[in-house]
Simulated scan of single mutants.
Amino acid sequence: MLILLKTIELLKSNNPIAQKEVFEKYSDVLFSLAKRYMGNAMAAEDMMVNAFMSIFKSASKGKFENARSFEAWMKRIVVNECLSEIRRNNSFQMLPQSVAENLALEPDVLKQLAHDDILVLVEKLPPGYRTVFNMYVMEGYSHKEIAKDLGISEGTSKSQLSHAKKMLRNKITNIYGKETRFRY
């Protein structure tokens, strides 16, 4: 669902029709992205609206080679909005290691899960775990980048990811009665 470069050029001049077209084409995608980070629809909607305000305000400064680079730029704005809100609310916290126990293996369980099922489980993770999991697994950030963006150490990023995986394994086991290991 790529947007035309002509629309991007119109967006740069604050054209309301272009703004509406961009909103209509990308609001669902950007909302889903925000919801993965924020964990609930209301907070995700707030972050999406804030992101669109930044997108419309900053579009004139952007130099986009193609529609894909424009989409990536918008997604980065959403992620940054979410991370700022998470930092503002101090919701990045460690949970005791006992919360996520190490489980045995059965790799076929992940094949049985639908994409939406996994996203629902990720949304239920504590904010710190969810944030690092999203950044590392879903967005492809390195632990070094995550540490810099969140103001934490690389070790904390790695620990949060490990705990997130363990907690997800536990949730999957509780729901499906089978144990699994994430391979990332």
Rank of each mutant, 00 (worst) to 15 (best):
Y136D: 02
I172K: 00
S162R: 12
R87V: 06
T156Q: 12
L10K: 14
I77S: 04
R36A: 02
T156M: 13
A67D: 15
N170C: 13
Q97N: 09
E123V: 05
M42K: 10
Q93P: 00
N89Q: 15
S157G: 08
Q112I: 09
I152A: 03
K124V: 04
V137A: 07
L30N: 05
M135K: 03
E24R: 06
N80Q: 11
L4W: 10
D46L: 07
S58C: 06
G177S: 08
E81R: 10
I86E: 01
L10M: 11
Q112H: 04
E21F: 00
S13L: 09
E154G: 04
S91W: 06
E81Q: 15
A51L: 01
E179H: 10
P107S: 14
R169E: 15
I175H: 05
A51V: 01
F64V: 07
Y141T: 06
T156F: 06
L11S: 04
R88F: 08
L11A: 12
M135A: 08
S13H: 10
E101D: 09
V78D: 01
M42G: 05
T131V: 09
V78E: 00
I172C: 06
H115M: 12
G151C: 09
I86A: 10
R87H: 08
N50T: 06
I8L: 11
